[in-house]
Design a protein around this nucleic acid. Sequence first.
DNA 1: TTTTCTTGCTAACGAGCGTTAGCAAGCATA
DNA 2: TATGCTTGCTAACGCTCGTTAGCAAGAAAA
Lengths: 195, 195
Amino acid sequence: MMPSAPARSRKTQIDHTATALFRARGYAATSMRELATALGLEAGSLYSHIKSKEEILHRVCFGLADEFFAGFDSATADAAAPVATQLRQAIEAHVRVLTRDSAASAVFLHEWRHLSEPARTEFLALRDRYEAGFRTLIARGLATGELHAPDAAFAALTLLASLNWLPSWYRPDGKLSPDEIAHRLAEQLLSGLAG
Amino acid sequence: MMPSAPARSRKTQIDHTATALFRARGYAATSMRELATALGLEAGSLYSHIKSKEEILHRVCFGLADEFFAGFDSATADAAAPVATQLRQAIEAHVRVLTRDSAASAVFLHEWRHLSEPARTEFLALRDRYEAGFRTLIARGLATGELHAPDAAFAALTLLASLNWLPSWYRPDGKLSPDEIAHRLAEQLLSGLAG
DNA sequence: TTTTCTTGCTAACGAGCGTTAGCAAGCATA
DNA sequence: TATGCTTGCTAACGCTCGTTAGCAAGAAAA
């Protein structure tokens, strides 16, 4: 039992490489032989570290769900803060997760459908719960008059939609930093485009 | 040569059913045998009507691209109209295409990556050109002061992101009509959430 | 030293994949 | 009647898939 554990075990490396491939080619179109080659291994060797292909997908999807919840919870920890502030912080937390690991985020957003039951249903329940967090936050803002929209559910869906497109164009070496992106997104979504 | 042509040839039926399957399971995870079964055929029989699996994907993706361009062009035909009006109409045209065939739209948005070269590159060029339409429209609005945002490219990306999430939750039998959805989206994106 | 864990290999399994060849029935046109 | 198009079948092809069994080398732990 090594005290200074290696920062990235073989299993973690597999997850990481698989995530990049799943994002680029899609889960179904990524073969275990491709994954093995990308890691400098033979296909069979992967199974010394993992139980199945889907196990990787499961870990990526549910691991990222945890991160999203953690971000939202800390953004809304101060329930006494103005709703607009909490919403802005939640947006920024969401963007921070998306930019910290955009490959995993893309997999989380698009490849969950390849989970088999019951994981698929569990995942959708988690996602619903997360969206509900934004929905009720916006609903509270509508009630206090801090926000205005015809429908909280509709507004929440649109807001998350704008954010969730990010992994498909975000590049870590782009000219905008994650914080700048988060700030601009929050600004544009809260204030709109019209002058 | 029948004058009253059958509204849906066998080929069109195949495209339509395949689109639904591609959307639900993804292109790579949909087999020709599944597709054949859904049509009440054997797998080999499909090839009396189509040349390959990818041919279907190609037709769906490029066919929808045509629709998007047609919508944008007619929305911005009156170049003398206020930019905000043109933008609103372009948003509504985009939403109209998305809702008229949300399955094909979902395939257009997510499955194009399974096109092989050179189709894939051609498709991305088309998509870029379409996005550029929104980008320059917004840029003109910024120049005239009708719109305000720190960056036209960023704003265009966010705007399309909000719209393109629609096929993943839109249901034709939902409580909002396509026109209402289009109107609310345009309103929310142009005016923002903040009160 | 002995044991155990980690890591990786080769070879193969059963299954499913997209696709093709060859054939045939039904129908519209000539 | 004869022709040719549309539609669909059966059977099979070569290939790739995810996964497993069995083995072995090296490092760590006892």
